[in-house]
């Protein structure tokens, strides 16, 4: 405050003398009561808005609580949730048991047992690919949700776009997810998929979904928003 403060560093540390309003307590307490009462009345008469979006909040109440089990907040776009094994159009997993995800997984929570398609078994239309997972197991308790498996997968066969977290279980075995538990969600196919490359079949007549389904599929929050990536239409060859 005074010019002495430049010379004496200690003087800066002296306590600012309390104002008469603070020393008599009453005015400051009255202000505090006014503030607390304002919040009390707003929350007493105002309806609580369970909308988690802070900027969209309207109404009197200042309570920001979302009553969790009854009301749920949508996870944000790009949320890395529970894994899923992406199915093909025929319902089988897209996975070709290449072990990329199991190899990159820093928590080593993925276990794959590969099977091989025989030369003349009933999976005739699958013969273009040689391997499939006999077992595909993720221990969700070990998973550190880093998403490296999704990046590593060359076949877009594992995704974390379920927009849910791992539900609670009563025993550890419940967190070990096998193929029946993992295989869910919308089917995905790409023009480059090997089973379309057989001589007998033509590429499918649909848009190339790879780019935008990766981001938007399963995200309820995103349904209302414009697509983040423009859909690229592939011309028929």
């Amino acid at each position: 405050m005074s010019s002495h403060s430049h010379h004496d560093p200690l003087e800066k540390r002296e306590l600012v003398e309390a104002d008469i309003r603070e020393r008599t307590y009453v005015p400051e307490i009255l202000k505090g009561i006014a503030l607390t009462t304002k919040h009390f009345l707003r929350n007493l008469f105002g309806e609580r808005d369970p909308n988690p979006d802070v900027v969209d909040r309207k109404g009197l109440a200042t309570i920001t609580t979302v009553n969790y089990p009854e009301e749920k907040v949508d996870y944000p776009p790009g949320y890395r949730g529970l894994h899923r094994l992406v199915p093909r159009e025929d319902g089988k997993p897209r996975c070709v048991a290449c072990y990329m995800c199991a190899t990159i997984c820093p928590a080593q929570c993925i276990y794959i047992e590969a099977g091989e398609y025989g030369g003349d078994d009933e999976h005739a239309e699958s013969r273009v690919i040689e391997k499939y997972p006999k077992q595909f197991v993720i221990d969700e308790l070990r998973c550190i949700v880093c998403g490296l498996c999704v990046d590593a997968c060359p076949k877009d066969a594992i995704r974390m776009d379920t927009y849910t977290h791992v539900p609670s279980e009563y025993n550890r075995q419940g967190f070990v997810y096998d193929i029946p538990k993992l295989l869910k969600g919308p089917a995905v196919s790409h023009p480059s998929d090997p089973w379309y490359k057989r001589g007998s079949s033509a590429p499918p007549d649909h848009v190339h979904k790879e780019a935008h389904t990766r981001i938007t599929a399963g995200g309820a929050a995103l349904a209302k928003r414009p697509p983040l990536v423009e859909v690229v239409k592939f011309a028929k060859p």
Binding site: H39, F40, N43, R48, I63, T64, T65, N67, E70
Partner: peptide
């Protein structure tokens, strides 16, 4: 009251059997 003053919901879980939560 303290919950309202602090922008909280306050205790609301207790209920009679057969009625929904809160």
């Amino acid at each position: 009251w303290s919950a309202f003053m602090q922008d909280r919901v306050g205790p609301n879980r207790a209920r009679f059997p057969g009625l929904p939560n809160a």
